Structures are given as C-alpha cells and as structure tokens.
Simulated assay, not measured.
Amino acid sequence: MSDQPLLERRIPVGISACLTGQKVRYNGGHKQSRYCLNVLDDCFEFEPFCPEVAIGLGIPREPIRLMGPEGEHPRAVGTTDPDMDVTDDLMRVGEDFAERHRHLRGFILMKGSPSCGMERVKVYHSNGIPHHADQGVFVRALRQCNPNLPLEEEARLNDAVLRENFITRVFVYDDWKNNVETNLSYHTILQFHSRQKYLLMAHHYEGYRELGRYLADAHALPLEQIAEHYLGRFMYHMAHKATRKSHTNVLMHLLGYLKRDIDSDCKQEVLACIEQYRQEHVHLVVPLTLLKHYVKRFGSDYIRQQTYLNPHPYELGLRNYI
C-alpha cells in the first residue's frame, strides 16, 4: 500500500481497541491486526474502543466470561468470582456508544471476547463447563441499538469471501448515510436502489426481488417508514455471502445490456471468461475486468453507475481472491 489514503475521505469504522495495538486486554496485552492497520487504514478512519476498560475494569484484570442457561441472554461474570457481574455495565456502555457513534459505518471486533465477540463465544454452565455459544454483551447492545451497522470479527477477515462481504457492506452503508439519509426523499431511495440493484442481486436474489416489489408499492407510505424498512431489509440481505453462482448470474445480466453493442467475437470472449470463473478456474476479477472494459466503451449510464462494478477501491484487491 502507498502512504496516501485510497479515498479523499476515510470512512469512520469502530474497532476493538486491542486490535489497534492498545494494551487493554485482561492480561495487559494486545491483539494488533496488521491487516487493519497496514491495509484497511488507508480507507477506514478507525475509532478504537474497549468496553471493558470503559466500564472501569483495570489492566490487568480478572478475566470475565459468559455464563447462563441456553435460551437466555448470558451474563458476563468474573472467571474466579462469579459474583462480579458486569453485564448491565457492558450493556449500558454499549448502548451509550451506539447512540454517540451513529456516524460509524461498521465495527471490527475481537473474536471470542465475552464483550466484543460477534458469535460463537463460549457460554459456561455454573459448574464451569462450556455448553453453548452466544455473542458478546457489548455486541448485543450494538445490534439492539443499530441492527444495520455492519459487524465483523478481525479473525474472519482472513476468509476472502467474508472479507469482501464486510467491506462491501461498509461502503454501501456509507453510500446510504451520505446520499440518502442526508437528503431523504422517495427519489433518493429509488436512486440508491437503482445503483445498488445488481450488487444486491449478487448477495441475495430473493432480497433483490423483495425490495424491488416493496418500492414499487410503497410510494404512498410515510417516508421515514419506507426508509427504515428498506434499509433494514437491504442490510439484512447484503449480509448473505455472494457465491460464484450468484456472481455468474449478475455478470450474465450485465452482459445482456451490451449484447447489441459488441460483436459476436467480443461477446464470446466475455462468455468464455464468465464460464471459466463459474468453473473455478479464475477469480472474479478476471471476467469482471473484461466486462468493465466493454461497459466503459458501450454501456449506458444506468449500467455504468452500478456499484457492483466498483463496490470498493480496486487497490484493496478484494475480488482477486473470490
């Protein structure tokens, strides 16, 4: 990466403070993420936060863990002193953080943490044996206060598909916050849907159909109701992982807009490239680069504006590995 940011304005994203190298863990250590600090820092303006320190727990400190029966929200208690229950404090700082940080476009979390773990955090029985899993208490508060905020664990960013999914969601959420929320109208919602149409299709075809039908019928509803429902469903559908099958479907749809403008040899070249991708011989960047070449030359304004073609800075190379 260069020393220059990829974007003129870096996108504000929250991050567990230990992932930035801050020594805030229970043992006085950290879990610094090279990928976050050396790569994503070029496009994200990270805002570190440690909920355990925020509620007044010291460094170092007695570690906490989740405890409780399955089917109930677990409590965050001390590992040696279960009478030390910090659940309500973590929920309070989580709710306060979410309310004061409505400007964030995402949050990168520490895996396995009883406060910051996004999923599969061990929940212990009173006898000290783990018996199921849940989310961290701080994450529960974040989700309750802002269910649309993209969340991901740093360790899961090692998975190319999950990495691309999370970063894509951050960028589309940023689009909504900047271009719809600040100038809310039925027209700006329609414009957003129009440019995000094929990106949504790649992530969830049924969601793409659902929201298209919803907007066609929703014009008489109160504007705030339309926006709240649309964004909630849109971000829910975007959390689905795009697959080779769904990407192939979108590539074929986009090619359909060009078939009258490119000659047969060019069309066959693109089709062959898409088929190579479908059969897992090449990564998505290969057919997409060729298709973008023809879209730039022959595509309509409608196709050129599709965020599917450029959902995030190409320098991140996210589609080089999926």
Rank of each mutant, 00 (worst) to 15 (best):
Y198I: 04
L199M: 08
Y186S: 08
Q196G: 00
L162E: 07
W176T: 12
I189C: 08
L200F: 09
I167T: 06
V170Q: 01
F166H: 08
E181H: 07
W176D: 13
R169Q: 13
L162M: 10
D174R: 08
R163K: 11
R163C: 04
T188C: 11
V180D: 11
R163W: 04
R163E: 02
E164A: 08
E181F: 02
L190A: 10
I189E: 12
T182G: 05
N178W: 02
D175H: 13
Y186E: 08
D174A: 07
Q191V: 00
I167G: 06
N179S: 09
V180G: 12
N165G: 09
L184E: 15
E181T: 05
V170M: 02
Y186D: 06
T182E: 08
H187I: 06
V172L: 13
E164G: 01
S185G: 14
L190M: 15
Q191D: 15
N165C: 11
K177G: 05
F171M: 14
Y186A: 08
R169N: 10
N183D: 13
F171T: 11
T182P: 00
N165K: 07
H193R: 01
N183V: 04
Y173W: 06
W176H: 12
T182N: 06
T168A: 00
H193T: 00
H193F: 02
I167Y: 04
V172R: 09
N183I: 05
Y173T: 06
W176P: 11
L184V: 13
S185L: 14
Q191G: 10
E181W: 05
Q191S: 13
N165I: 01
M201N: 01
T188H: 14
Y186I: 12
L162I: 13
L200C: 10
Y198S: 06
T182S: 09
F166A: 01
L199D: 05
N165Y: 02
Y186G: 11
D174N: 11
L190W: 13
Y173R: 05
V170F: 00
K177N: 11
I189D: 09
W176I: 08
E164K: 07
L184A: 13
Y173G: 02
N165V: 04
K177F: 06
V170D: 01
H193Q: 01
Y198A: 07
Q196E: 08
E181V: 05
L162C: 07
N178E: 15
N178Q: 15
N178S: 15
N179L: 10
I167V: 14
E181Y: 06
K197A: 10
F192M: 03
Y173Q: 05
V172Q: 14
I189K: 10
L200T: 07
L200M: 12
F166Y: 10
L184G: 10
N183Y: 05
D174E: 13
R195I: 14
V170C: 03
M201V: 03
D174P: 03
Q196D: 04
L190V: 10
Q191F: 01
D175F: 05
S185I: 14
M201F: 04
T188E: 15
L190C: 14
Y186M: 10
K177Y: 05
L184D: 15
L190I: 13
